[in-house]
Design a protein around this nucleic acid. Structure first.
Length: 573
DNA sequence: GCCGTTTTCGGCCCGACTGTTTTCAGTCG
């Protein structure tokens, strides 16, 4: 398998970490981190770009030197510079850097003066009181380090967006209950709708003399106050999530909201744009010399740098600023654009509710249609349907559908793609369906090439319509299987089939970056919930969030269309 | 190490809070 972009990013991040500890020029360190970020957020494979002879220095933050290092990584799988660094410094220092409160300077002091090379050694030194004796350290630092090690805080998994949303709702309601509070808003990666969030950034504006920080740290779920100041406080909640509260002046609310929404890369790009115009942009406003000229709203800030408003979901410095400059920002899809769900299960297999109940629940949500897509036979653990049971299910759907005049129930199946690339049910029964969802549920560990060929072969079937959860990832649980998505997308575009954005909170698969890739290649997406019960139909909004991060417009999504229009897009109709 | 609306050299985004400090470095976002 060719070297992946994420591997290049990892190597550059490691180089940056070790150079940082060696106290190299901080801008040199930043250059490696910026390059790492470029590769983590890029869809074309750098290895392919090199093979095609494309110029890597056209990429943001890549100059001659880094381009050469990228070529070395692609050819050898490693970087001599990193190996040299790792000969000088123990690799256990990577873990030390991840401990909150330890940055490159302190890690270096621990290593040089106490010979500490890993977390275990730090723990022993802190317990014996050696750490507090170092210049720049003290009793409190030592105690904080021990506490952090004990809680393994640095390895904590990120919180899924939907779990963060529950926490946000409760906390926002609590803050709003304080009479002095005027506005409350959750910013950060939560507002950008990232599928997982590392911490929460809550912003407030208050009346004069507010005691909001005291109110905040008194919240019942707070287990630890990390920092408490006039305008900023940080706490840890039960469950480990860190929440930062910032108090903003009303006059700079928009600038603060922009700043704390991020992403960091987007902010830097916008601020640089301001610099070119002689303006200073910070969390308090837009300043011309010392005069504030904008910042009450986000719009006023974008106005000053001659850009239209950019939706939070797009603020990743992945082309949105250039697109805004050309006035070519996408008009992002909204929940109200969705007309039906094409992937739900019933009690017939592993769902919790009946066909009638699921249809009624879909109708309640204002949908015009619902496709019943139960599992196929080889999913024995889910009581998958064989041809006989599917035929009966088809009759039941037809019977119920006949009773409805303003709602359509569609006959579908989530048919397994077998390891050899054949579909799990015969064509004779598949042809009786309105559409099919095709899915990989087994043999996740095939080589990248075999997995890709397996799915490509399945796509050859005239009854292949939608590829379900195309990478199989489960957030915080299972990595995506190895597959060449670019080839799959090219094939999907050529064969007129579609890819799913599975809105299940642990899947969100395709992820945003891949949605953007599909859009660029003209592959349309179906956003489906994979609901196994009525309530889960509401996961659609999670899918919409991910789709918006992936630049999708209503036009790019097939289930924004009336059924008659969608039907015409399916092969064979 | 990158990069150019003043630059091929000399800049590089910016501010709050903590802890260890008598005026600030380090960390964090």
């Amino acid at each position: 398998m060719p070297v992946q972009n994420t591997e290049i990013a990892d190597i550059f991040n490691k180089v940056a970490d070790l150079l940082d500890i060696e106290a190299a020029n901080p801008f040199r360190v930043a250059a490696y981190r910026r390059a790492a970020r470029t590769f983590r957020g890029m869809t074309p494979n750098a290895a392919d770009m090199v093979a095609e002879g494309r110029d890597l220095t056209k990429l943001a933050g890549i100059g001659d030197d880094l381009a050469e290092k990228i070529r070395e990584i692609i050819e050898t799988g490693t970087l001599g510079q990193l190996e040299a660094l790792e000969r000088r410094l123990p690799t256990g220092l990577y873990d030390l850097l991840r401990i909150p409160g330890l940055g490159p300077r302190k890690v270096r002091a621990l290593h040089d003066q106490l010979g500490i090379a890993d977390v275990g050694a730090l723990k022993r030194a802190a317990r014996s009181g050696d750490v507090r004796a170092l210049k720049g350290f003290g009793r409190k630092t030592e105690a904080n380090l021990l506490a952090a090690i004990r809680k393994k805080k640095w390895g904590q998994p990120r919180t899924p967006w939907h779990a963060a949303e529950k926490i946000v709702q409760a906390l926002v309601a609590y803050l709003e209950a304080d009479d002095s509070v005027k506005q409350v808003c959750a910013a950060g990666s939560f507002r950008r709708r990232q599928s997982t969030v590392g911490d929460l950034d809550i912003l407030v504006t208050c009346r004069r003399g507010s005691a909001i920080m005291a109110h905040f740290v008194a919240y019942e779920d707070v287990v630890r106050v990390i920092a408490r100041g006039e305008t900023k406080s940080s706490v840890e909640l039960r469950g480990g999530l860190q929440v930062d509260l910032r108090k903003l002046p009303q006059i700079g609310y928009g600038a603060g909201l922009h700043y704390f929404t991020g992403s960091k890369a987007h902010n830097i790009a916008v601020r640089k744009r301001g610099q070119h115009k002689g303006l200073k942009i910070n969390e308090y406003g837009v300043f011309d010399n010392d005069a504030r000229i904008a910042g009450r709203t986000e719009q006023s800030l974008y106005d000053q740098v001659d850009l239209p408003y950019i939706e939070p979901e797009l603020r990743e410095d992945r082309g949105e600023i250039a697109a805004a400059d050309r006035n070519e920002l996408p008009e992002l899809i909204r929940l109200a654009d969705i007309r039906g769900d094409l992937h739900v299960h019933t009690r017939e297999t592993d769902g919790q509710h009946s066909l009638e109940e699921m249809a009624a629940a879909a109708r309640e949500r204002g949908y015009a249609y619902l496709a019943i897509s139960n599992h196929s036979a080889s999913m024995t653990v889910a009581n998958g349907l064989d041809a006989g049971r599917l035929a009966k299910s088809i009759d039941a759907i037809d019977a119920l559908d006949a009773q409805m005049d303003d709602f359509k129930i569609l006959k579908s199946i989530e048919v397994d793609i077998r390891p050899d690339g054949t579909l799990d049910l015969p064509d004779e029964i598949l042809k009786k369906l309105d559409l099919t969802i095709c899915a990989v549920h087994s043999a996740f560990d095939l080589s990248r090439q075999k997995q890709t060929e397996r799915i490509l072969r399945a796509m050859d079937s005239p009854y292949f319509n939608i590829l379900a959860h195309p990478t199989g990832r489960l957030l915080n649980t299972r990595d995506p299987y190895a597959v060449d998505l670019e080839r799959l997308m090219e094939a999907a575009a050529a064969r007129g089939c579609f890819m799913e954005l599975n809105a299940h909170p642990d899947r969100l698969d395709l992820k945003a970056l891949h949605c953007q890739m599909a859009r660029e290649r003209g592959v349309k997406i179906a956003i489906n919930t994979d609901a196994h019960n009525m309530d889960s139909l509401d996961h659609m909004r999670l899918g919409i969030g991910e789709a918006r991060r992936g630049w999708l417009e209503a036009e790019d999504v097939i289930n924004t269309r009336p059924w008659e229009a969608l039907k015409k897009m399916l092969p064979g109709s």
